[in-house]
Amino acid sequence: MAFSTTFHPQTDDQSERVIQVLEDMLRCSVLDFLGPVAYQLELLSELDRIHDVFHVSILRRYHFDPTHIVPVEEIKVRPDLSFMEEPVQVLDHEVKVLRKKSIPLVKVLWRNHSSKEATWEPEEAMKQQYPHVF
């Protein structure tokens, strides 16, 4: 599931983070092969509201890494299968200069994500939503 805004311009940073978390949550085994292009996966009982059949184009080989293990209870999944991302800290600051304006950005480390999954966010929006991080 290596989505990027290059090929999916309708996605935003929040969608990218959701995709990353879903990738982490789908670290599981194949239960059944449903033809050449669909797999039925064995999911944890806590994920019983997620559809368990996936097209092969969104799956990729996984190489085990113990840092990827995130207990499901740490992520509070709502009944509509959404969840709230929590920023842990600001890693860096940058100013994006456009033609007629400058946009201050901050690189944010999110809970349950590695530092290489940190995202650049508008500083003003982050200060309004998460003042405790600054």
Rank of each mutant, 00 (worst) to 15 (best):
H51R: 11
S102L: 02
Q129N: 14
E117Q: 15
L91N: 12
P66M: 08
I69M: 02
D80L: 10
A38W: 08
L41W: 00
H113E: 11
Y39M: 02
S15I: 05
L91C: 09
V133W: 06
N112Y: 15
R78Y: 07
L109E: 12
R99C: 04
P131C: 12
E124K: 09
V97D: 03
L105Q: 15
L98W: 02
E121Q: 14
E23Q: 07
E46Q: 03
A2H: 11
Y62V: 05
E42P: 00
D80Y: 11
T67P: 12
Q20E: 09
E117M: 13
V18Q: 05
E73G: 06
L41N: 00
L98P: 01
I19D: 08
R27D: 00
H93Y: 10
V70E: 01
Q14R: 14
V108Y: 13
E74R: 08
F83N: 04
L47I: 01
D65A: 13
A38H: 07
K101Y: 11
T11V: 10
D24T: 12
L81R: 10
Q128E: 11
P122A: 08
E23F: 02
V37F: 03
T11D: 14
V133I: 15
V97M: 00
F7H: 09
I58P: 01
V56T: 08
I58N: 03
V37P: 00
P36N: 08
C28V: 00
E23Y: 01
S29A: 01
L105R: 13
Y39A: 00
L34D: 01
F3M: 07
P131V: 13
R27S: 00
Y62D: 01
A38T: 13
K100N: 07
L41I: 00
E74T: 02
E42A: 02
D48T: 04
H55F: 05
I50R: 07
E121V: 09
E42V: 01
L47N: 01
R61P: 07
F54H: 01
Y130Q: 02
T6K: 15
T119Q: 10
S57Q: 03
L34C: 00
S82Q: 08
Q129C: 12
P104M: 08
S57C: 11
E94Q: 12
E42D: 04
F33D: 00
S4Q: 05
M25L: 12
L91T: 09
Q20G: 02
